[in-house]
Simulated scan of single mutants.
Amino acid sequence: MVETYYKSMNWNKLEDQIDKETWEKLTSQFWLDTRIPLSNDMDDWRTLSPAEHTVVGHVFGGLTLLDTLQSQDGIQAMLKDTRTQAETAVFNNIEFMESVHAKSYSSIFSTLNTAEEIDEIFDWTDHNEYLQKKAKFINDIYQNGKPLEKKVASVFLESFLFYSGFYTPLYYLGNNKLANVAEIIKLIIRDESVHGTYIGYKFQLGFNELSEKEQADLKDWMYDLLYTLYDNEEKYTRELYKEVGWVDEVMVFLRYNANKALMNLGQEPLFPDGNAEDVNPIVMNGISTGTSNHDFFSQVGNGYLMGKVEAMKDSDYDIGRTGDRKTPESDSLFSKVKKLK
């Protein structure tokens, strides 16, 4: 018999069923920014003040940078350490969608902004001290970290650091403004929720294989990293939002999502005021308004539901629900993640 040189992918015989479920979820919710009628938001855009225009532009510039980092370096870094062939396929899908996310912001810019304004946005993005530090903190881990450290950095990026930017369009949506711009953000959030949960799940598999000492050391490193990122994120948020007076509210939203990032990694929450009821209800209204589907792991929809892990209450993840119907426990990827601990 000829020795196997290259192994073909057999989706009918998988090492980890979560890979298949995640692949099916991600492909079922595929979208492109060209399908969203952004020009319908121009009337709302004209009602915003110059300071608000600047905030929106800089917010999306920052998000563009982070999605560019994730699509060009982050996923490639984690692809080197996949456990299964199907996991590689899932990461390939994630990498492509991160590029779609980054491109989507340029579609928003071309609709809302002049050429001169777009140049200013990207110049600000490429030279903002705290934004560049954020990218460096994460990319240094992607380039030099251990496999599990890379996954921690990715989950912190997708489940925490993005949300200083996501706050703005969700706030406007909660005030019945910029609905189509916010629709793109909700689609991105929907993707990032799956990405953060899946990568967190893969982290937990590796974490559970470590010795107690190795686990303790990694947890110390993880929380130290979160403190470093949070400190920088606070400075970034203050610079970004000081002119419109939203700093304190955005920081609460960040703490809420930092706790969710930790939960995706199977860890305990850190911030006592990081609960849904602590977040500005206008933003929560923006998250929940107009969702086309409330079963996260069954059909295409744009509801905002974070990954469910054991230490979080189910009510913390009901943000995008418009009714009482829930995905059956046996059909949910998140219910399987809960069984890891």
Rank of each mutant, 00 (worst) to 15 (best):
T322N: 12
Y304E: 04
M306T: 07
K235G: 01
M251K: 14
A89V: 13
I282F: 08
K260Y: 11
L112P: 02
V300D: 10
G61D: 01
F334S: 13
P272T: 13
E234N: 14
K336Y: 12
T47N: 07
I138E: 05
K150L: 10
F122E: 07
N128R: 02
Y230G: 00
V252E: 04
V100I: 15
L218W: 09
I75F: 09
V244Y: 13
N285H: 11
L131H: 04
I185M: 10
N208P: 02
L63S: 07
V90H: 07
D224Q: 14
G290S: 07
I121L: 02
S332Y: 03
N12C: 03
V337K: 03
T322C: 06
L170Y: 10
K151E: 14
D324K: 10
G266D: 08
M306D: 05
Y201F: 15
T168W: 07
L112D: 02
L262G: 05
G323I: 03
L333F: 13
F60P: 00
F297N: 12
E268Y: 08
R190N: 14
Q85P: 02
L218N: 05
I188F: 01
I138N: 07
T237W: 08
T114F: 03
Q76R: 11
T289E: 08
V300M: 06
G290V: 07
I121W: 00
S28M: 11
A258G: 06
V90Y: 04
D123G: 00
G286C: 14
I108P: 00
T27V: 11
D220V: 10
V55T: 10
I188S: 01
D140M: 06
I282E: 11
V155C: 12
V247Y: 12
L270H: 10
S288E: 08
S99L: 09
K13G: 00
N208L: 13
N40T: 05
T168R: 05
K326G: 01
E87F: 05
L240C: 08
W23R: 12
D318C: 03
K133S: 15
R321N: 11
L262P: 04
P50K: 07
E158G: 05
P281Y: 07
I138A: 06
Y256V: 04
N40Y: 04
D123I: 05
L161Y: 04
K202S: 03
A77Q: 08
I188L: 14
A216K: 12
N128H: 15
T22H: 04
Q85T: 09
G74R: 04
D324I: 06
Q72N: 09
Y171S: 01
V252T: 15
D44N: 06
R46D: 11
D295N: 06
K260D: 06
D33K: 02
D33R: 00
T125I: 01
L218C: 09
D273M: 11
E120Q: 10
P328N: 09
W124H: 09
Q299R: 05
A153E: 09
I18N: 13
L69Q: 08
E268S: 14
Q72W: 03
A182G: 13
D224E: 14
G320W: 03
I189Q: 05
K326R: 14
L170C: 06
E249C: 00
M97S: 07
N144E: 14
F166Q: 03
D119L: 11
H101Y: 06
S39D: 10
K186P: 00
R46N: 12
E158R: 05
E234T: 15
A216P: 02
K308L: 09
E120L: 11
Y223C: 02
N180P: 01
R190D: 04
S330L: 12
W31N: 03
